[in-house]
Every structure is written in C-alpha cells, then in structure tokens.
Nucleic acid binder design. Structure first.
Length: 806
RNA sequence: GCGGGCGUGGCGGAAUGGCAGACGCGCCAGACUUAGGAUCUGGUGCCCCUGUGGCGUAUGGGUUCAAGUCCCUUCGCCCGCACCA
C-alpha cells in the first residue's frame, strides 16, 4: 500500500482556498430560484494591528451556519467588508504624515489576506468599504433623506474641549477628566452640531423588538437604553412671577411630598432671572465646576451630593399652594426630561440623600416605609397619605387620579419620556463622510443636490483638528467656498463630517447589490435578500450600532425603500477572547495572539476548530495555545482514519445508534451555537472509531460531512482522496433516523432517598408504571437498598430511579 | 452609580429540575521505539478510618422525592454607559 503523506495543512489549505476562489462556489447567486439565507457578521474596522483572534470567532461561527445552509440547499449570502472611517486611522495619519486613505488601503489588503487564509466562505465579489466614494455617496444620500424628512437638525451641544490642544476630543480620548495626549484639563464646551432625531423612533424601536429573534440580553439592554417611562409634566408657578417651571416626573402621585425643586446647572431659568438671584456668582461658579464633569460622573448615586440653593426665586407647589425652595444641582441633567425636577425626598433615593445632606424637610406621602432611615420607593404596596384627595389610594390608582386632576386644572399633562437621546451626528474630524450641505447667507442651510453626490472628501495638507474646534476641512478654502445650489450666490460647505456609525448603519443593504450606481441597492435585490436572517456580533454593539442601524432601516422602511421594518431577523452575540493570562488582549499587556502565528504552526482548520471548541460561544474565554494544539491532534487523528477503513457497507451494527445520535447532536448544536459540544461529540465518535480499530467507509463519510463546516479544508481534501465526489460545498447535509438510535438496554442511576447508590440496566421502553412495580422486585435493586422497605419509587425514564425508604 | 451578564476539578469547560465534572488541556503510568516534546492504551474532583464511606458547583438561607440548575441574601469578576469601534 502506498504511504499516504501525513496531514499537511499548509498545502491542503492553499490548494482549496485557491479552488474555492476560482470556482466562485461561495458567491451568492442573483437572481436565483432557490430560497435565500443571509448570514451577517459585523464588518471589521481594518486597524493597523491586523486581524485579532476575536474576529475569527464570530466569522467561523457564521461560516459554519453559511456552509451548513448551502448543504441544505439555500442560496447563501455571506458577505464581508470594511468599516474604515474613524479615529485610529486618522491619528495614525497625523502622527506619521500619511494620508488616511493610503493607510486604510494597506490595512484592508492585510485584513483581506489574513481572512482568506482562514478559509471563510465569504462572497468576496460583494466586498464593501465605507470610505469608497461609490459607497459613501449613498451614506450621504440617506443623510439627505433624513434631512428632507425633518430627522436631521442643528443644535447647540456640549463637546469635550481640551484646553491644551484646543480641539474637540472623543470621550475615549478623555481619561480621568484630562486629555489623553497632553494631560490638560478637558471641559465641556457648547458647539452647534448636526443631530439625528432618533428619539422620534423610540417607540418603533421598542415595538420592533417584539417581532425579532434577538437573544434576551440584547432585547433587555435595548429596552433599558431606550428607557421608556410614563409620567406627567407638571407646571410649578414661580412665586410672585408670571413664569412657570415645568418638570417631568414618573411619580406625580407624590406631588404632595414635593418639598423643593432642583434645576440643572445649565437651566435657562438661571440666566433669565440672573438679576434677581442674590447668589448668582455662587451659582455660576457651581455651573463652571459641573461643566468639567461628564453626565456619567454627575449622576453617580454613590457620590456626595452637591448643590446650591437659588436665593431670590421660589416655586409654588400646585397641589397645596406651599412655597418651596429651588436648588441647582448637577445630578439633574439638561438632556433628560425638562432639565428640572420636583424633589420628593421621602420617596426618591437621590432626593432623600440630597435633602438629608442639606437639611431640607421631608413629607411622607406613601405609607409603608421608614423615611427616617431611607427613601420608601415601593410602588406596588404603597398607600397614599398626607395627600388630601389621594389619601388611601394605592400608588397606581393615585397616579391615574392626580394626572386626570392636573390635566383638568390645566396644570400639567400626561407624558411619556425616553432616556434615549438624539444622536450627535457631527464630528470635527477629517476622516469621515462630509455632511452634504451648504450654508448660504441668503438661503440658509441648503442640501447638496443628489446629482452632485458624492461630496468628495478633499485632500488636505494637515489632518489635525484646528484651534477653532473646526474640522481640518475648514482650512480648505478652495473646497469650503462654493456656490449655493439654490440661489447660485457664494456659500460655504459644511465642514463637519459624519461619525463612524453612519457607514455601518446600512452596509448590510449595500451587500445585496454592492455595485449599483443608480440606488443604494436595487429594489429586486433588496426584496430577495433582506432581511438579514442571522446577525452575529459583539455584546458591546448592543446599544449603539444595533440601535442606530435599526433606526436607519425603520426610516428607509417608512420611505417605502425597504420591505420589512426590521433589518435583522435574528441577533446573537459572541464572547471576547482574552489573553492566556485571563486579561483583555492588548499590546501594552503583551498578551496578544496573532492569528497568523497559529495558522503557521497548526493550520487554519485547527485554529477554527479551537476557536469553536474553547468554550461557550457567548462567554469570554482566555486563549490557550495548548488547547489549540489539542485540536490539531484531533485533526491528525481524523486524517489517519483514511487508513483505518474497515470492511462493510453502511454503518457497523455496534455504532449505528451513536452515528445517528451524533448527526442529530452536531446539527442541533450548530444551530444553537453550541459549537463546543458539537465538536466534543465528534471527538467522542472518533475515540469510538479508534477503540474499534477503525471505521467503515460510510462512517467516515458522515464524519467528514459533519466536520466540514468547522474544518473545511481537511474535509474537502479527505472527501477527494476517499473518492466521495468533487467538492462537498453543496453535498447534502446528513440525515438521521430516531428509530436507529434505539439501544437494547440503557443504564440508569439508582438513588436511595435522593443519594446515588448504584447503577442498573433497564429496557429503554420501561414505563413509569412498570418501573414502580418491577424495580423493587429486582435482586440488584434490593441489594442496593439493603433490605429496607421501599415506600415510594420515583422513576425518570432513561435517567434514574429514586427509591424512598424508611 | 445605572443597565446587562458571569461564578463548577490544577486549567478551558459539560450537564431539558433527574447519575456533577462529557470533551479537551495539563499531569501520572504502561505499550511501541535506536530515539520521543510522535503515536496508541489506561488513570486523574477533594478527604479519610480505603467503604455499598464522607465532602463537593463563589457565600448563607429556602422550595423539592431530587437543586450547579428555581427563589431570596451576601461577596467577587466581566461588558456597556451615548465623540473608541
């Protein structure tokens, strides 16, 4: 017999990658009569560090699904692209004086090469790149649609301002209140910015979650992020003035307990009554201090509450006419509700702490707690007291009654509030999509006509943000000075660019028809491929990217441009891969694993196999190169089975039940993303083959099919060498037969009073009734019980029996 | 702080309320071998008085014939927090 060469992944993998690429076997067909299946992974940001071992985790997981679906007869769309605008590339460009486009191209080429070495079944003919003008033309086009529909507007918003660099900073560049680069103090500075009215879609974003198959953690986090709360807006008259202060409250039932009010330091009331506020200087100083803190720091419950009472203005509680003080404190945010609250210290934890610190009186209006010790916030059991016409009512009923009363008296209205805030869409940066509008002194803000899209990002000398806080584009006078599309007079281009989120908010639509130059994608392609059937990505994208892209899709749906309201039918998440020391992988920690090194040592198949085997898919797992070597050993064992083929047709008698069980388990586990147990089942099967001295041809054939989605190269090669056919990409997925899984006897555990005392063999068909009468009679059972009287038998078919004895 | 999640051998992990530790790593022993950091076979939660023994799933309590799994408590770790992606 000629000696078969040892398993050589390098050779095999190159061979099959080339063959797949040349045959285009993984390219999605369009048009097609087949049912479609759209698998999507979050497209990577092509960082200069190259591929991270985290990318292949998600990619392999959905590659398994994509490959399995092809074997099941679907026309699969599994695309790849690059989300290439963004800060790191821009900063690299600034530092090294290289154009970001050049850096981006280099990084993408490197990423593509690394991805191709891993044998993912991507359709590379549909690759997208958010920085390609042919792509961002449509990002700009969607922005214009948002603008046209009143969903884009300009507003004064605070940005992080570095007092040293004299430029705006991303939150990430602010570390502990100072600039990451120069260490100078960072303050909040107000600037006019483009905003997207995502809040208008808050309810739709909430409702849509009821109709999609997202893992619960994602749904819950999205719901909490949107943060719907029902309550009321109530007007408090300012004492002796013709002016009202409006607050939002979720607890209007506690209105009788409102003993003071709090406005946020930025509240317009302060400037308006500047001259009547005796301690204006102190309040202004407090406001300046607050400007140094983030909302996050300001609302921390654990921190010591700070605040200043406004001396000179008081409010009147509308329900009882009592005059109450107004305070300024940074725990009230201008961005939520009305920027002012009524404080009910007896029944709100933050108000309680504040009132306790400053000695403000409390009035208990919901009985049931001890307000001398802590705020009583129970809204289920509480009953109203000290509240005139609300006394004796339960909280829910009181809420309803007081709102009706307020509405009737014209003092307030029912109101639903969302924590969700509008999306700050401007960046004062170079490396992003130019916002396609022109500012004309006569016509105001004028959109660039569609025919002039894309507004190309011009080359500039210097990518650094300017001293004025403007984008580097502002220095490009040739580009900035233009003519107004409406009146033809001199005008200036918008110099802010879009955030990186823009390009990633619709890329899954472009994949459907990536080369279209008449539309972001053709109607036919969208109708056929959308929605995405299965989208996998990181948990860290749950609240921003996932919400932003759903928002854009819902909007395009409202315009009638996409059929379904929701873009993603199913969403799952993968866990992070940590370094071998169980810490997050990072250059500074020196624990980074480079996928290339692993592929060089063990091969792409072993690498893929290990990434799927290392642990539960949705959990964070530390890397272990030894673990990966174990996966390589498994593939070596599988390879050697080619020379261990036993005679016989079909499955051998002894292994028939196990073969069918394994087919069932592997298929079901892949679908449930329980890749680790699917692989464990195949390992067990191979162990059985070795124990039997080999396997039949048919048994090996089935194993290859089951393993092929995870380790496609070795499986293709074995498929060919064994003469099973030419290429297994569209070979039917193996079937199983429940009846064939049946065994003559099964072992069950025997418990005595709940403790395991032994094991016995029983028929798999033994019923509960039979067990109750027959089992106590058996000699082996009696021996386990040891002569005691059996009072009760609890039998769980196929599992165990529990004997209760006296 | 708020929101989401996690906690099981030396390590990664497995387990529809039903025999805890599948599978892999590591380690130990044996076989084969000129050789072994290759391969194959076996063993491997902890403890002891070595048994049909005891104890074991972060902590303390509860529900149940039965709890890693369900409920409550405490502790610890991870992710997100709106200009990183």
């Amino acid at each position: 017999m000629p000696q078969r060469p040892a398993y050589n992944p390098e050779q095999i993998e190159t061979k099959w990658q080339k063959r797949w690429m040349e045959s285009g076997v993984f390219n999605a067909e369009f048009p097609s009569d087949k049912p479609k299946y759209y698998c999507l992974i979050e497209f990577p940001y092509p960082s200069g560090n190259g591929l991270h071992v985290g990318h292949p985790r998600s990619n392999t997981a959905l590659d398994i699904i994509a490959r399995k679906r092809r074997m099941e007869g679907y026309n699969v769309l599994y695309p790849i692209g690059y989300d290439a605008f963004g800060l790191p590339t821009e900063n690299f460009a600034i530092k090294n004086k290289i154009h970001p486009a050049v850096v981006t191209k280099k990084n993408i080429d490197h990423f593509r090469e690394q991805l191709q070495r891993l044998g993912f079944s991507f359709d590379y003919t549909r690759e997208v790149n958010t920085t390609d003008p042919a792509y961002y033309k449509w990002t700009q086009w969607i922005f214009l649609k948002l603008l046209e529909n009143g969903l884009a507007y300009k507003a004064e918003m605070p940005i992080n301002w570095c007092t040293g660099c004299k430029c705006g900073l991303a939150n990430e560049e602010v570390v502990g209140g100072v600039c990451e680069r120069c260490g100078s103090q960072v303050v909040r500075r107000v600037k006019s910015q483009w905003m997207l009215r995502i809040t208008k879609y808050a309810q739709k974003l909430l409702d849509g979650l009821d109709h999609v198959d997202f893992i619960d953690a994602v749904k819950t986090q999205q719901r909490n992020w949107i943060g719907r709360s029902e309550g009321a807006e109530v007007d408090f008259q300012l004492a002796g003035k013709d002016e009202k202060l409006r607050v939002f409250t979720t607890r209007p039932d506690t209105l009788f307990g409102a003993t003071y009010m709090v406005v946020s330091p930025e509240h317009p009331l302060i400037e308006k009554f500047k001259n009547e506020i005796a301690n204006y200087a102190a309040i202004a100083a407090y406001r300046d201090e607050a400007a140094k803190k983030s909302d996050f720091e300001r609302t921390e419950l654990a921190k010591d509450k700070t605040g200043v009472e406004i001396d000179g203005i008081r409010a009147v509680n509308p329900v009882n006419g009592k005059e109450i003080p107004i305070w300024v404190s940074d725990y009230v945010l201008m961005s939520y509700g009305t920027g002012a609250i009524m404080a009910v210290p007896a029944h709100d934890t933050r108000d309680w702490e504040f009132a306790t610190k400053f000695g403000i009186p409390m009035v208990e209006v919901v009985a049931g707690g001890d307000i001398t010790r802590e705020a009583y916030t129970d809204i289920v059991d509480g009953v109203l007291c000290n509240s005139d016409f609300l006394n004796g009512l339960r909280v829910a009923d009181a809420k309803k009654k007081i709102i009706d009363w307020l509405v009737e008296k014209g003092l307030g209205e029912r109101k639903i509030n969302y924590k969700l805030r509008d999306w700050v869409f401007s960046r004062q940066r170079y490396w992003g999509e130019p916002i396609p509008v022109v500012h004309c002194p006569h016509c105001g803000t004028v959109p660039v006509p569609e025919s002039e899209l894309p507004v190309l990002l011009p080359d500039v000398e210097n990518y650094e943000p300017t001293d004025s806080g403007e984008s580097p584009l502002a220095a490009m006078t040739d580009w900035v000075n233009t003519t107004c599309p409406r009146c033809g007079g001199p005008a200036k281009r918008e110099t802010d660019t879009m955030p990186q989120w823009a390009g990633s908010s619709w890329y899954f639509l472009r994949y459907c028809d990536p080369h279209d130059d008449k539309a972001f994608a053709s109607q036919e392609a969208l109708d056929y491929f959308m929605p995405v059937d299965w989208y996998n990505g990181g948990m860290e994208h749950t609240t921003l990217h996932l919400l932003y892209s759903r928002f854009w899709h819902l909007f395009l749906h409202d315009l009638g441009l996409v059929k379904a309201p929701e873009p993603y039918q199913k969403r799952t998440s993968h866990g992070m891969i940590l370094g071998e020391n169980n810490e997050k992988m990072s250059k500074s920690r020196g624990n980074v694993i480079n996928p290339d090194d692993i592929v060089n040592e063990l091969g792409a198949d072993a690498f893929r196999l290990y990434e799927m085997f290392m642990g539960a898919f949705d959990q964070a797992i530390p890397w272990s190169t030894n673990g990966a070597r174990g996966c390589r050993r498994f593939l070596d064992r599988v390879w050697r089975l080619q020379d261990m083929v036993l005679p016989g047709e079909g499955y051998s008698k002894a292994l028939t039940p196990l073969m069918h069980e394994t087919i069932k388990k592997v298929g079901e586990d892949y679908e449930a993303m329980k890749y680790n147990t699917a692989i464990a089942a195949m390992m067990s099967l191979v162990n059985e083959f070795y124990a039997a001295g080999g396997c039949t041809r048919e048994e090996l054939r089935t194993l290859i099919l089951l393993l092929s989605p995870v380790a496609p190269h070795i499986c293709e090669e074995m498929w060919e060498q064994m003469g099973f056919g030419s290429g297994l990409a569209r070979e039917p997925w193996p079937a199983y037969d429940e009846k064939a899984m049946k065994r003559a006897e099964v072992e069950i555990g025997v418990q005595v009073n709940g403790k395991v005392r032994g094991r016995i063999m029983v028929s798999p068909d033994l019923t509960r009734e039979q067990a109750e009468t027959e089992l106590p009679q058996r000699a082996d059972v009696q021996q386990i019980v040891g002569g005691k009287t059996i009072a009760k038998v609890i039998f769980v078919p196929g599992r165990l029996c529990n004997l209760i004895v006296k």
